[in-house]
Amino acid sequence: MTLPLNGYLALALIAAVPLAPLWLPLLPLVIWWWRRETRIGRELGYAALPRFAAEAIAAHAEAAFGVAPEGGWTVVARNVDRYLNAVDSPRHWRTFGVLTILAFAPWLRLQPRLAALPLPRRRRFLERHLRTTRGFLLVPSLARQLVRMGYYHDRGIAAALGFRTVNQRRQEPARAAASAASGAKVAG
């Protein structure tokens, strides 16, 4: 079944209505938990991410990439945090919804949350269940783009790929000579 992203969120809400007697009493607890996770996130230095989301991003990165950034996997979460903190968008809350679903998606398979899964099982979970561009699991799979952004933004990782920054390129002798000879190109 293919639905719009908002459709899945609406469906989740509708599904939650008959279960209201169960979760409504828990709602204050959930709000308390979310605030606590956000506060702990702040204490850990995250401006936008609650702790569980940062842990999910780091855990996802560890399972998806072989080589850790020099500062460890939390670097990926910190890069994502900087991005999210800079975004100003009315759709922003959806990103946090996606990250929450990612963090707890293994519960749907009666497994511990993503960050608590041992690495081989985590890798298996991602490969088996989040390799999709359709259906409900599209939602957590969207988080892979955030994780990729956070990982490849690391300077050491980019350098290991062979990428050279503009300053590094400018220091190459042939480039420096060509640059000195260049000037404005004007039409007309």
């Binding site: 900087r82 991005y83 800079a86 975004v87 968008s89 922003h92």
Partner: peptide
């Protein structure tokens, strides 16, 4: 890139 995508793209490119 992440910071610029966040700042100059509508909805942070999303």
């Amino acid at each position: 890139e992440p910071e610029m995508i966040a700042r100059i793209y509508k909805d942070g490119g999303a």
